[in-house]
Simulated scan of single mutants.
Amino acid sequence: MLIGVPKEIKNHEYRVGLTPASVRELVGRGHEVIVETQAGAGIGFEDEAYVKAGASIIDTPEEIFATAEMVVKVKEPQPHECRQLREGQLLFTYLHLAADPEQARLLAESGATCIAYETVVDRNGGLPLLAPMSEVAGRLSVQAGAYHLQKAQGGLGALLGGVPGVAPAKVLVIGGGVVGTQAATMAVGLGADVTILDRSLPRLRQLDTEFAGRVKCVYSSTESIEQYALEADLVVGAVLIPGAAAPKLLSRELISRMKKGSVIVDVAIDQGGCFETSKATTHQEPTYVVDGVIHYCVANMPGAVARTSTMALNNATLPFALALADLGAEEALKRDANLLPGLNIYKGQVTCEPVAQALNTEFVAPADLLG
């Protein structure tokens, strides 16, 4: 199979779909890989490394979209990239379609087969291709929050860990999944006073054991969200409904009553955000202020540590990329019940039920189309 890797073009996005090490694996299995020039240069993967791994370097992204049988990216394709996709071509990347009806429409019109990293599952129902970036984003959320709590950044001037004689800052993490666990780990490590809210009692028990009492594990309800948000210096939104739009857990009215100079970090922004006042930002302009509360809503948070993120992501995606290349999309999807939920758009139809519900459009079961 001919596999193409275009350079990412979102604001301050330096990740790349395949590392040279991944290219070497694909080439070793008899596949051909073409990489846009300088696609990985921003994180130290120069063209020479790709050539050494067996890839060919291509000058323009248009040539990659025009010739590749499978396009491997990191972020969702931008509108002009969607329009370059063609019928029968395979796109393997993050899509987050629930919050992006325009992208869904363009991908459906292209006729391409679109597999989203974020809805591929494992045998336990986990999200193996989302987990590495969730780990990164969870850890970064606390770093970003701590930075913007500094007075020079507009924050209220609080140090997460406090000092002897001064109480530590209060951190609220909403959601006890991968993002929330990693956020809490970082916050505890910095000495903060941490509370996790979640609606799963078994998960709260696990977290209580994992953190050995260093984190308050509280059942998430309208009342508990309000109580702990009003006390918090930093709130991390870490909720996820796979494939679906994120629920709005902090209303504008509640945010208006929070501490002035407090910070909220919305890690769910790719899925539309879990705060009513959230809107996507970039690494170039990461924050804005609503009612005195600083909002950090960067839609590609792991891009801030792009080299670490790229390698972590490739560790997870490479086995699936190899299967898709070896077998072709249709056969790989038929054989792998864990890959099948990743199929979001196929033959012009929406084939992921949570996406269809979020977009209020028809859902067609992928198995029906695949036969």
Rank of each mutant, 00 (worst) to 15 (best):
G371F: 03
L127S: 04
A146D: 15
H295Q: 14
D193L: 03
G157K: 13
V163L: 08
Y50H: 05
V215C: 04
L159V: 15
L95M: 10
F363R: 12
L359N: 11
L172K: 00
V74W: 07
A332G: 03
S200T: 14
E231G: 02
P286M: 12
T37P: 15
A321R: 00
A312P: 06
L359V: 01
G42P: 09
A167E: 13
L204W: 03
E135L: 13
Q150M: 10
A116T: 04
V16D: 03
P319Q: 11
P286Y: 03
T93R: 02
L95N: 10
S134D: 00
A312S: 14
I225Y: 06
V235Q: 01
F92V: 00
I241S: 03
S134G: 05
V188C: 01
K10G: 07
H12P: 08
A49Y: 06
K73T: 10
I9M: 15
A238N: 00
H295G: 05
L149Q: 08
I43W: 08
G126V: 07
C274D: 01
F65I: 12
P242Y: 13
Y219A: 14
P77C: 05
K259W: 02
G42H: 03
P6H: 05
A21Y: 14
L327N: 09
T209E: 11
C274I: 01
V218R: 04
C352N: 15
E253N: 07
G273T: 09
G126R: 09
A21H: 11
A116W: 05
L254M: 12
V33Y: 02
K75P: 14
S220G: 08
A246T: 01
I58V: 09
L254E: 12
A365L: 14
G30Y: 09
V35E: 02
L359M: 06
I43F: 11
A158R: 08
H96D: 08
Q206P: 10
F92Y: 15
I115Q: 07
Q78R: 15
G342P: 02
V163F: 02
H283I: 11
R139V: 00
T287C: 14
A323P: 04
V163H: 09
R24H: 12
T317G: 07
S256A: 12
A98F: 07
S22F: 07
E81S: 10
R203I: 14
Q349W: 10
D47E: 13
I241A: 03
L201R: 08
G176I: 01
V215A: 02
A365G: 12
T308H: 13
V72E: 02
K347N: 12
R214G: 05
Q103A: 15
C114W: 04
L340N: 04
G17L: 08
Q84L: 11
A232Y: 02
E210T: 04
R105C: 07
E25I: 12
R24C: 05
A144T: 07
I34S: 01
A99Q: 14
L90A: 03
